[in-house]
Write a protein that binds this DNA or RNA. Structure first.
Length: 581
RNA sequence: GCGCCCGUAGCUCAGUUGGAUAGAGCAGCUGCCUUCUAAGCAGCAGGUCCCUGGUUCGAUUCCAGGCGGGCGCGCCA
């Protein structure tokens, strides 16, 4: 395999910024790396801006004077880019035709891969996300981890990384002894075919009650758990395995609706055999000690905030804990994948746990500790601003939410576009898109108020708004082609009125890269919304059909490029990009 | 009590490594469907960027201390 010349892989905008950077470095004497360019907040100022405060300090002259001097120098050096001083700012405007030709050309040439790169070639990213518990339906609380993790997976894949998405199923623990006994006794009393997870939930809940009320049941459950833990491959294990597989079948439908797949499904039970090794590693390193009867790793020396909260590896009764299993899982993943980054897409309420986990890695002196990241996200809060808990009357089962939103989108699709060829499919795309986008549009650390109205609204800053924009662009493209127009050579200078759109198209690859770096899909969501706004503003007043051929061709090219970028962005986030809606 | 996170318009949020007049959406009010989908567009109105101090030519942004809200804090996961 031959490696592409990295310079040729630079996004379109870089051809311009590189020229500006080099020219500024030459004129100011600053190293190129220290020439800090920014995108002006107001596009009327230009495409690229250089605040002259720093340079002025070095040159010992007032910033506005420096800006004016540099403007003259830049205009003498640069071609196709004009520089103008506005107070202390030096603003660059790229020749409109050049900007349009280069950006649109690159977007169209790269198509579905525009926004991506080969940045991650040969590197592996492990993403732990979703991770529901068996015998319980996925709750809306699982939504954020599922949607965020899947989006991150697609983003890293687009950047050329090998992505291993792991579903760390909660399939282990003493409570499953009770479930096994419940299945043994009452299997025939519930419907486990139509909706296996709901049936299992009923049994699970009955088993919890029976544990308290019925000593014989409790004893049988304990015995079942002991047998399960012993590794014996008998009736108990077979029943547990059946319950696990039935749950996974139920989850699979939900994942399919969301367009999500994991590369690996590995329950906590998978790591059971590796627990002794994990504990031994800590003991051999001399960092494990007995405290109040439990085996712990003290962490105060690493992190003062953890003085009072050591990491517990083994309880007084000899059994292991969450942290032990996560540690074992992490060692296993490192050995198997030699990851560049290992991301845990888990709620912020588990921050302490991951801080402890990383502190243990530090005490072990493992150099790859910084590669382990807790991609935390805010809580899902109820209307009372308290953590959302299961309550009667609230629809909190994930599938129910998906159904409810799709029902609403079906109603709206019928109302808005009665002649649509496949309304069910489009309604599903829009409903799911609304849910996914609603979750990804804000910074992940922010708590989310679970607001049904918010999710069911398809106007403004929503997934359907972008899907609608995409569908309209597709419609324009269809109509232009039907009319047999758009085949002329484009006059790129006629896209001068679309400069904000061109800038956003050109910067899209930077947005994707930044979103990956920060593990923050909301950066893409917000960039798409801004693009959508600028685009809508542009095309309502720039008709494509029936213009001079060179104008129609140029506008059609921009429509296609914009549609491509919005589509790419929506798909990265996990939203469909319908051609019609 | 300790630790961490959040605090920007009535509500929900953006705001790039500190930089120009702090921006969107929703809700409210005005307009725009005989021309490429009105899930849209244009406009009006709406601000003590929680407070106080510090660093800086410059702070919504960085630092410290408060205030308010949330989450977490050894044998659950």
């Amino acid at each position: 395999m031959t490696r592409a010349d990295p310079l040729q892989r630079l996004p379109a905008m870089h051809t311009f910024t590189a020229a500006i950077r080099a020219a500024l470095a030459g004129a100011t004497g600053l190293p190129e790396a220290e020439v800090r360019l920014e995108a002006p907040r107001d596009t009327a100022h230009g495409d690229v801006s250089f605040p002259c405060f720093q340079a002025a300090k070095g040159l010992k002259r007032p910033p506005p004077v420096v800006a004016a001097e540099l403007a003259t120098a830049m205009n003498a050096t640069l071609r196709g880019i004009t520089a103008a001083a506005t107070g202390p700012y030096l603003n660059f405007t790229i020749d409109r035709a050049d900007l349009a030709r280069v950006v649109v050309g690159e977007v169209l040439a790269q198509g579905a891969s525009y926004g991506g790169s080969d940045l991650g070639r040969g590197k592996t990213i492990v993403i732990d996300f979703s991770s529901p518990n068996i015998a319980k339906p996925m709750h809306v609380g699982h939504l954020r981890s599922t949607i965020l993790g899947a989006a991150l997976g697609r983003i890293f894949t687009a950047l050329g990384y090998r992505v291993v998405g792991i579903n760390h199923i909660g399939d282990w623990g003493s409570q499953f002894g009770g479930l096994v006994v419940a299945l043994r006794r009452w299997k025939s009393e519930v419907d486990l075919d139509a909706d296996p997870v709901r049936g299992l939930l009923e049994l699970y809940q009955r088993s919890k009650k029976a544990m308290e009320a019925d000593p014989a049941f409790a004893a049988e459950a304990r015995a079942a758990w002991q047998e399960l833990e012993s590794g014996k491959d008998g009736e108990v294990r077979a029943t547990w395995r059946w319950a696990t597989e039935a749950s996974l079948r139920g989850f699979a439908r939900t994942y399919e609706r969301l367009g999500i797949r994991h590369e690996l499904v590995r329950g906590e039970s998978f790591y059971e055999p590796f627990l002794p090794d994990a504990i031994e590693a800590c003991q051999k390193a001399g960092i494990a000690e007995i405290s109040a009867g439990a085996l712990v790793v003290q962490l105060g020396a690493i992190d003062k905030g953890l003085t009072e909260t050591p990491c517990l590896l083994r309880q007084t009764d000899g059994t292991t804990l969450y942290a032990t299993r996560d540690l074992a899982a992490l060692f296993h993943r490192h050995d198997e994948f030699h990851f560049e980054r290992a991301l845990y897409v888990v709620g912020a309420e588990q921050k302490l746990h991951f801080r402890q986990l990383k502190a243990v890695l530090k005490r072990l002196g493992l150099p790859w500790e910084p590669r382990v990241e807790h991609v935390e996200f805010g809580l899902l809060l109820g209307k009372d601003k308290k953590k959302l808990a299961s309550r009667k009357g609230d629809v909190l089962v994930l599938d129910d939410l998906l159904d409810e939103v799709v029902e609403e989108s079906t109603r709206i699709v019928r109302e808005k576009n009665a002649g649509l060829a496949n309304p069910e499919r489009v309604a599903e795309q829009i409903g799911i898109g609304a849910i996914v986008f609603n979750d990804l549009k804000r910074e992940r650390i922010k708590d989310v108020l679970f607001d049904r109205e918010d999710i069911l609204s398809f106007e403004g800053e929503t997934g359907p708004y972008l899907q609608y924009t995409h569908a309209r662009l597709a419609s324009i493209e269809r109509k232009v082609l039907e009319a047999g127009e758009g085949g002329a050579a484009p006059d790129w200078s006629k896209l001068a009125d679309a400069a904000p759109v061109l800038g956003r198209l050109g910067r899209f690859p930077d947005v994707v890269r930044s979103a990956a770096e920060h593990a923050e899909p909301s950066e893409i969501a917000n960039a798409l919304l801004a693009l959508g706004r600028d685009l809508n503003t542009w095309y309502v007043q720039a008709r494509v059909l029936g213009q001079e051929p060179a104008v129609t061709a140029a506008r059609l090219a921009l429509v296609r490029a914009s549609k491509s970028v919005i589509g790419n962005g929506l798909r990265l986030l996990g939203c469909a990009a319908p051609e019609e809606m």
